[in-house]
Computed example of a mutant assay.
Amino acid sequence: MQQQIRPHFSIVYTLAELGWTREAKKATMALASFYMRSMSGGTRSSRYEKRAK
């Protein structure tokens, strides 16, 4: 699982390094929502999902 997660957070890190903080924030929220939904069996809607929009 760690091998699947690492590339996604590398993208967020790169966005932040480039100064694209808004995009990094959106990506972080989208990833949090995705992982929370995945871990709950796909039935849970999170506050991160609502913020990312």
Score class of each variant (00 low, 15 high):
R51G: 00
I5C: 05
A32D: 00
L18M: 10
L15S: 02
E17Y: 02
G42L: 06
H8D: 10
S10M: 10
S40P: 00
S38A: 14
V12P: 12
Y48Q: 09
R6M: 14
E23M: 15
R37W: 12
Y48K: 02
E23W: 15
K53W: 07
Y13S: 11
I5A: 11
A52W: 10
H8M: 07
R47D: 08
M29G: 04
M29P: 00
L15Y: 03
M36W: 03
S10T: 08
G42T: 04
F34G: 01
K26W: 01
I5P: 01
V12K: 10
R37G: 07
S38R: 13
Q4E: 14
S45D: 09
Q4C: 05
L18P: 00
M36N: 03
E23F: 13
R44K: 09
Y13F: 12
S38H: 10
Q4W: 07
L18G: 02
K26P: 00
A52S: 15
H8C: 02
M1I: 05
Y35P: 04
I11N: 06
R44N: 03
Y48M: 12
M36L: 07
R51T: 03
S40L: 07
M39K: 08
S40T: 14
R44Y: 08
A52I: 05
H8Y: 09
E23A: 15
A16I: 09
T21D: 11
T21S: 12
A16P: 05
A32E: 04
K53L: 12
E17D: 04
Q3C: 06
I11L: 12
R37K: 15
E49Q: 08
S38L: 13
L15N: 02
Y48R: 01
S40D: 11
F9R: 06
M1R: 04
K26V: 02
K53I: 07
S38M: 11
M1C: 03
S40F: 06
K25Q: 06
E23N: 14
M29E: 12
A32N: 01
S45H: 09
M39C: 09
T21I: 13
R51A: 13
E49C: 02
Q2P: 04
T14H: 08
S46V: 08
K25P: 00
Q4G: 04
M36V: 08
Q4T: 09
R22S: 04
H8R: 11
R47N: 08
Q2R: 10
L15A: 06
M29K: 02
K25E: 11
T21V: 12
K50H: 10
R44C: 04
E23C: 08
A30E: 11
I5T: 10
Y35R: 14
T43K: 09
M39L: 14
I5N: 06
A32G: 00
G19Q: 08
I11T: 12
P7K: 06
G41F: 08
S33T: 03
S45K: 10
S46G: 11
Q3Y: 10
G19F: 07
V12S: 08
K26F: 01
G41T: 06
R37S: 15
Q4Y: 12
A24L: 10
Y13M: 06
K25S: 04
K26C: 01
T14M: 07
R44H: 05
L15F: 02
T43R: 13
H8N: 13
A24R: 11
H8T: 04
A16T: 15
S38I: 01
A32R: 01
H8S: 07
L31I: 04
S40W: 02
S38V: 03
A27Y: 00
F9C: 02
S45E: 11
S33I: 00
K53P: 05
I11Q: 09
